[in-house]
Each structure stands twice: as C-alpha cells, then as structure tokens.
Design a binder for these strands. Structure first.
Lengths: 338, 338
DNA sequence: TTGTAAGCGTTATCAT
DNA sequence: ATGATAACGCTTACAA
C-alpha cells in the first residue's frame, strides 16, 4: 500500500494538517518544517491520493471530453490538442467515444457526468442536432457543469462555443475559385451536421453573389453507404455522366477532395488545368494524393487552446465570451492554380 | 449539490447500507425494497460519487493509457479500440500523451501512477528502448500495477505484452514479393523503435533466405528531419540516382509507402508494372493514393481486444499469458500485382 | 434481510 | 505557526 499523509506527518513529527498545508502551498508554514516535510516526501516518494483529494476539494479537477470517434483523423487531432492544453492547465481529462447515434450520446453524457467532472467538452459539430428537442440533453447538462462545444454553435446559459466560421471560409474559397475563372463548381458532401450545413450555406452564398444560375444542380450528396474513395470517385463520374459538367470541385472534407482527385485521374483529367479541387480540414490526408490537395484549414489548434482557456476561466468564476469565432484559411497546394 | 446515498436512504426509509447493497448488486436484498430504492434512484436521478466510491473500494477502476501522440493515425486507432474495450469491461481510462522523449515519458508515468490507476497500458513500441537502462521505469511501474504493452515485447514479472509478429509479417511479405520475381527490393524506414527493428530484421531474413546478394545496399533510412511526403519521394529519387536500382519497395509504414508511390509518379514509373510497393499498418492512408496501397495489417483491433481481456484477467487475479503474439496479414490492393 | 459503525485519505475550520 | 477534528460519500465487516 502506498503512503498516506499520516505516514508522512508521523515521520516528520508534525500533524497531518501541516503536511496538507505544505502540499497545497497554502497558509504560512515555517520554512524549516516545510523543508523537512518536503525532504521526507521526496525520500519516501509519497504522492497524494487523488480520490481522497477530490472528496475534500469537492472537485476532481477533471474534464469530460466527448467525441464521436477518437480515431477519426479530424477528431483525433482536436482531442489531442485539448488534452495537451488541459494537462498544461492542471486538469485531467476523461475521454469518451460515443459513436454517432443520438441516444448513445445522451447515455454517455450521463455516464461521464456521474464521474463528477468539472466540465464537459463536446468535440465536433455532430453533437448539435437540427431539431431543438435533439439538444435538450445539452441544456440539462449545462445545469450541472459548464459545457464547451468545439466547432459548433449552440446558445444557452452555461454553454460556451468555440468555432471556425465554416460558412464564411467556404464562401471565400468558393468565391476565389469562381473569380479565378472556374464557374462550374461541383459541391460534394456527406452529412449535414452543424458545420456541414454552414459549409453548404457558404457555398450557396458564394454562387448567389456571383449570380451563378442553376448552381443547385451541382450540389451533390454522396450517399452515406458508399464509403470507399474509389467508389466515391465512381459516383462522381456517374454524376457527370448524368449530364452535370464542372471544372472545379469543393469538398466538405479532405477525404471527399481526394475522391475528386481520383475521379480526375480516372477520367484522364489534368489537375489543376482541367479540374481544380479544394478540400476541407487541411489534414494529413492532403499530402497523400498527387497532386497534393489544396484545403481549408479551420485552425483546430487555436480553437482548442482557446476552448481550454475559456473553460478554465469559467471554472474560476470569470466572465467569458459565450461564442468565439475564428476564420479559416485557404492552404494552397497543387490541386488549384490560383 | 447532487444527491448522496444518504438522501436516497432517507427517502426510501432504509439505511445507507441497504442502498449501497442494491447499488452494488451484492448481498441479498428483499426484492420489494430493492424495487423501491431503484424507483427512487431513477426518480431523483441519483448517481454515485466515483471518488467516494474509489476510496471505499480502494480502486478507481481506472486504467492509465500512455501513448506518444494520440493524433498519430496508428496510435489513435489503438487508443480508440482500447477505450472501447475498457469501457465495455467497466473501466474508465485516463489518456496521457507523452511525446517521444524518454524523460518526458518517465515523468508522465509517474504522474499517471499518482492518480492511483489500477493498471497501465503503454501503446506503441516506442516505449521500449534498446538499452536496458531505458526500460527501468517499466520495471518500477510494474511493481505497483500491471503494465500492458501494445505492439512491443518486454519480459518482466508484472508486464504483459500483446503484439503482432512484425518480423514474420515482414518476412512473409518480402518473400512473397521476391518470389513473384521482384528481386531488387528497396526497404525504407524512419526510426528503429522495437517494432521498427523487428520489421527490418524480417526483411533481412527474407533476403538472406533468398540468397540475395548486397541487399544491405537497398536498405535506406529516411532522415528524421525530412517529413513531407514529396520530400521523401525526392530523397528516394536521389537514392536511386546515387546508383541503387530497384523494382520493388517495402516501407515500414503507410506514409513511407505513399512516398514511394509519389516517387514512381515523379519518375514516370508504372505501378505495379515497373515498381511494386507495400506499406505497413493498413491505415486509412492506403486508400488515399493512386493506385491504392497494398499494406500489411497488424490486427490492431484484435490486439486491443486481447490486451483488455488480459488486463481484466490479471486484475481479477487470474493467471494470464505474459506474451500474446498475432500474425499480420498482407492486404493486397493495387500497388502490387502478385 | 437490514442496520450500525468503522474506515478510506484528504481538506478546511476551528482552536491554541 | 501548528494541531485537533469534523466533514466528504461510499463500502463493508459485524450485529441484530
């Protein structure tokens, strides 16, 4: 069994209260006794029991992180940055992968709340539903602890959102592509999560403000059951064969962007001469295809850092902004010429 | 403040011991009182305080997971599977990303041990050093809790290893490539972690048993400072220009495999006619290049499941195998013709 | 079957 | 500056 504060106090010939004081750096302790206690702690390698500490402090100094799938390339990155920042701020984190089903998510929220975490971080816009009823669980949770949402927006009292302005980022990138002379732009996407909707909005806005006609015909949802990149490429080829022609592609994520590159290779189109492609997320995948994929970077690292800073502020009683929005940036590689 | 066991016992008109009993499903409780208590728990939404519980049980039912970088595509997958399995077995997990520096790793081990976790999982062979002194911290840790190692082998009393036989997997794949008529095989790798060494061993064994001469000339370490895939491709091209010729590439991971594909594209070589390529890990990256990358799958999901099963066994006092080895399988895609 | 009471290792409020 | 001591919420002998 490992040492307790009692063992240390005994060896040092002081009371546990004194030991506790030096441990917490709190009240005044005579420097000599402080030294003596520290020496003994070092010598015997004592470390406080964090459960007991949590009971005394009524806080675990632990944050619950929920994400749908921590092996997703985008979410993994976010979780990584969050944990690094939390750790640096002296918080533990409890990670929980929920999958994409709403009921499962609710259950996991309850589970993690029962661990008496000090706060909750929802990673990814898939935690926000379109219907208000789908989000009741967020309101309920926020009654107990502050809820942070990464990459989506939800307005409520004790919830704080950090996000990238996906709509505007997509708008700007689509506009830039259009103004470079590429007027027939195919938009491909998988799902309409919160950020998925924003991106599509941004694309539509861009086409509208360019007075582009019939742009809706070039908005293409990839059915969720087709997942292989080659299959998606084939689906795009089909779409083209059905009478839609385009010389640019904007994809809602990098995987889809790569599928578009594969489509071009299949059709013998040159990139970027015959077809320009822009992905989204600026993930490691961008380097894997040839030519390398131009992509929109949504500042995940900055978002994560800000989120933790905001959370720590909230937990220490400060007033913090309920919504912080960053702008994405277009990272140009070789699937675009502008 | 949330409810305690006292609140529930009061509302139910029983003692806290009885409530605790139904909570733990332990000793005999009359069905009617059990029902009554459950109803009240449901009605008021009581959830036990896990710190208090940990103190009583003298266990947090928590496992510490250490990995160098949870955003690494391979490690993220492993961590994901581990967490899923631990959760299913009723364990929490505390994830901690250590980076690749040895001293940092040691510090993190101590940190996580101070949380009084019930066990430790080291994810990835980069936790095992070549020199024995580098591994002392594992021995020290295993004196306190069982230590599980994923994807590497280390022999000690309270440490348990689950791994894929990388040497043999590489041996078989290289042999298959050789026997298909591809006799000049370039081996590329980054680092010599535990599994990195095994893979290289396997390659060497294969070449030796084929009586291939001068195969050492075709073993190429990519300097760690060059990281971009295009740059690696360029490095390979340089290597070739310096007088090494080859018609096959075996890469120590998928990223390097893709770099080899990029090299071929750069040189105008046809894949697989002029150059065959095999990657390692069978990650999502395999689908991103064109043609899609043949890769060795190291059964991460199976490894993770087995690891958790073994850990749970150890924690419940059962005798468990100290070393479990799976075999990798070659997943053939389009960078190979055999 | 149920209740009583003694821990578990801290923190924090009193006194001294 | 330091020491007693009461919480904190739970588990678990031991009694009844």
């Amino acid at each position: 069994m490992s040492l307790t504060i009692y063992d240390i106090s005994e060896k040092a010939g002081v009371s546990i209260a004194t030991v506790s004081r030096v441990l917490n750096g709190s009240s005044k302790v005579k420097e000599s006794t402080r030294q003596k206690i520290m020496d003994i702690i070092d010598e015997y390698g004592y470390t406080p029991n964090s459960s007991a500490r949590a009971m005394g402090l009524k806080s675990m100094r632990t944050i619950g992180i929920l994400c749908a799938d921590s092996s997703d390339i985008f979410l993994a990155k976010a979780v990584y940055y969050l944990q690094q920042n939390l750790q640096a701020s002296g918080y533990e984190s409890l990670l929980c992968c929920t999958g994409y089903n709403l009921d499962a998510k609710k259950n996991y929220v309850n589970l993690i709340l029962s661990k008496k975490v000090d706060g909750l971080i929802l990673v990814g816009s898939n935690f926000i539903g379109e219907a208000e009823t789908e989000n009741q669980y967020i309101i309920d949770s926020s009654a107990k602890v502050p809820v942070m949402v990464l990459n989506a927006s939800y307005h409520n009292d004790n919830v704080y959102c950090i996000l990238c302005d996906d709509r505007n980022s997509m708008y700007r990138a689509a506009t830039e592509m259009y103004e470079s002379g590429i007027h027939d732009i195919l938009y491909i996407y998988n799902s309409l999560s919160y950020s998925g909707r924003k991106k599509l909005d941004g694309f539509r806005m861009a086409m509208q403000s360019q007075k582009k006609e019939d742009y809706e015909d070039l908005i293409c949802q990839i059915p969720s059951e087709i997942t292989g990149l080659e299959d998606i490429a084939e689906y795009i080829a089909d779409y083209e064969r059905r009478g839609h022609s385009f010389n640019g592609v904007m994809a809602a994520d990098d995987q889809l962007g790569i599928a578009a590159v594969k489509y071009a290779q299949k059709k013998g189109l040159r990139i970027p001469e015959d077809l320009s492609v822009i992905g989204y997320n600026n993930s490691v995948l961008t380097g894997c295809c040839t030519p390398e994929l131009t992509s929109i970077d949504n500042q995940l690292e900055t978002q994560s850092r800000t989120l933790v800073k905001t959370l720590v502020g909230v937990l220490s009683g400060q007033d913090m902004p309920h919504k912080t929005v960053f702008s994405g940036t277009l990272v140009k590689r070789n699937t675009t010429a502008f």
